[in-house]
Simulated assay, not measured.
Amino acid sequence: MITCFDIGGTTIKAATATGPDTVTPVGRLPTPRDDFELFAASISGLVEQGGAPSGTPISISVTGVVDPETGVTTVANIPCIDGRNLAGDLGNSLGRPVLVANDADCFALAEAFAGAGRDHRVIFGAILGTGVGGGIVAGGRLFRGGGGLSGEWGHGTAVATQVSVPPFDMPHLSCGCGLVGCVDTVGGARGIEKLHRHLHGVDLPSTAITSAWENGDPGAAQTVDLHVELVSRPLALAVNIIGPDIIPVGGGLGNAHALIARLDAAVRQRILRKIDRPLVVPAQLTIDAGLIGAASLAFSEGIA
């Protein structure tokens, strides 16, 4: 048995796991953001609450970036672990082996072991949430690229400026990463909202835009057409580079199944591989994916 954690900027969720897809929730606590000793004590308390035997492993899904070479985590919204070797520091504090991966990687692992990627060899988990991210699982193992940044298809100047949707010209928008023209600026939920504002001068939440589109609204249809064109091009490039067998889509837009079907059709038209089944699909795990991913991390890495 292991204890797995899904750690975000506001909440720590814990569960015990006896397999990569068998988790039992233990509880949750507010995330201590500024005090590492309190952070470690919160983790320890949840481990004890779950009844894990002494010395059994801990596996963590965390918001942010984890460098696989140094173990250093970059977690801007949890200052007490930002810049730390989280696995090493927690392991020393609690006397247990600790594995840590970022939340997009754990999402991909969860879908690989218990979701839409089950029985597939190469899985590219794509996040279309507040922003755009992703993770890669190949042969049952997480692919950890240099600096912990593999699968980050949301960044880099990749967004087209000439499109087939009126008004045909698309300005590059500034991204929080410091670049311009990133998929992250237009691809996620906030991105489709920016596109709708750009086209129509109206602020609507992404859920209202996709709902209006499904109900035949022409303005929302124009927004969706533009979104699909802008996102399908870089996603098709990612497919050609990575060669995934399946792309489960998580995040808020992953719940818009009609939109994901449109995106799938556009991507399959643009890739080298000819495939007559859905490639880009909604994620199957919308609840506790972080915990399942953390469990999958430990069992796939052989520490459980």
Rank of each mutant, 00 (worst) to 15 (best):
W153C: 09
S164G: 15
V159N: 03
W153S: 00
C175A: 12
T161F: 05
G147E: 10
V159P: 05
G146A: 14
T161P: 10
P171L: 07
G147I: 08
G154V: 04
C177N: 03
S150C: 13
S174I: 05
G146H: 11
D169G: 12
R144H: 03
G151E: 05
P167V: 07
W153M: 10
V159E: 12
C182Y: 03
G154P: 08
S174Y: 09
V183H: 00
M170S: 11
C175F: 02
L149N: 10
E152I: 06
M170F: 15
G148Y: 13
G145H: 14
G176C: 12
H172P: 11
G156N: 03
E152M: 10
E152W: 09
D169Q: 13
V183N: 01
F168Y: 15
A160D: 11
S174K: 01
G178D: 11
H172D: 01
F168P: 06
W153P: 00
S174M: 06
S174V: 15
A160M: 14
G151Y: 04
T161Q: 14
G145R: 09
G146S: 14
E152D: 10
P166W: 07
R144D: 12
P167C: 14
H172V: 07
F168E: 13
P171G: 13
P171D: 09
M170G: 04
L173C: 09
L149P: 05
P166F: 13
G147S: 10
R144N: 04
F168G: 10
Q162F: 03
G176K: 03
C177L: 08
G178Y: 09
L173F: 15
H172N: 12
L179G: 08
A158Q: 04
F168A: 13
V163P: 06
S174W: 05
T157L: 00
V159K: 12
S164R: 15
A160R: 11
S164A: 14
G147C: 11
S164V: 08
G151C: 10
G176F: 12
C182I: 00
V180P: 07
C175S: 06
D184V: 01
V186C: 09
C177F: 08
A160H: 00
S164P: 14
T157F: 01
T157M: 02
M170C: 11
P171A: 09
G147W: 09
C175L: 06
G145K: 04
